[in-house]
Design a protein around this nucleic acid. Sequence first.
DNA 1: AAGGGAGCCTGGCGGC
DNA 2: TGCCGCCAGGCTCCCT
Length: 296
Amino acid sequence: MPELPEVETVRRGLQPSMEGRIIKAVELGRPDLRFPFPPDFAERIAGTRIRELARRAKFLLGHLDSGECLIMHLGMSGSFRIEGNAGHSAPGSFHYERNDRKAHDHVIFHIDENGTETRVIYNDPRRFGFMDLVPSKQVQDHPFFAKMGIEPLGNALSAELLAKLLAGKATPIKAALLDQRVIAGLGNIYVCEALHLACISPRRRAGSLVRANGCPGSRLSPLVQAIRDVLNEAIASGGSSLRDHRQTDGTLGYFQHQFKAYDREGAACTRKGCDGTIKRIVQSGRSSFYCPSCQR
DNA sequence: AAGGGAGCCTGGCGGC
DNA sequence: TGCCGCCAGGCTCCCT
């Protein structure tokens, strides 16, 4: 499910119920997700206040008053839902009965909201997600963050920087953009979409974009803009809802209705003036969808 | 050194 | 209807 827009959508959905609130207790349904929970995970969180709920790439970061940081990753199939009603649920959200446990509910945060209890529940069928707890000041030293690349929506991303990062790379641009050490937060869907928007073939060698036509950055500026546009539009639409991905209030994201390339094998290219057909190929084990006619 | 493939898990879907 | 194989949004490790 979750690439950057989905994680950002989840963050915004959780913010009212978590930021500034005290976690009264944590219930674990099992000792591990993808990795074991750290020692005394529940005990170290219980009683602390969440100062800030932030995001880095596809990670959620709950900075606690205790000085520790709750690191959460949704993997492929992780999702949160909010139970209980403190009065600020999104319109149309539905409520669960108390103790309405569902299959694969692995972590339950019991949160105090002005005297009433809210439960933030993490559900993850495939268990590729994980949680960890480290001192806030050591987050950037965490193995998952130490070599992490730039935020695609941050000011650091520019055609100039991307040129430096991709220079000399023989790997296909598709794989380079999926590499979290280059840009952190892009996944298979939005790389496909951004490359389509920028008219760049996923098969093109990354380094060849740096000086295309002998003109530095001539193809990277549109790519940078495409990455930003695709992510921002997806966030505005509440993310994509492949399979059962939902926002924290149970509603579905809508961006999948705007896919131009992803999962559209055999369909007509939507670009004005292009009569091509979307094709599916496999690159480093992942599906790439693109239009061979207008993406070069 | 960098790129490709396997592996971690479960559920959903298409095909027979 | 039922079973089987294939596929899936992420990420790391191992091998070439």
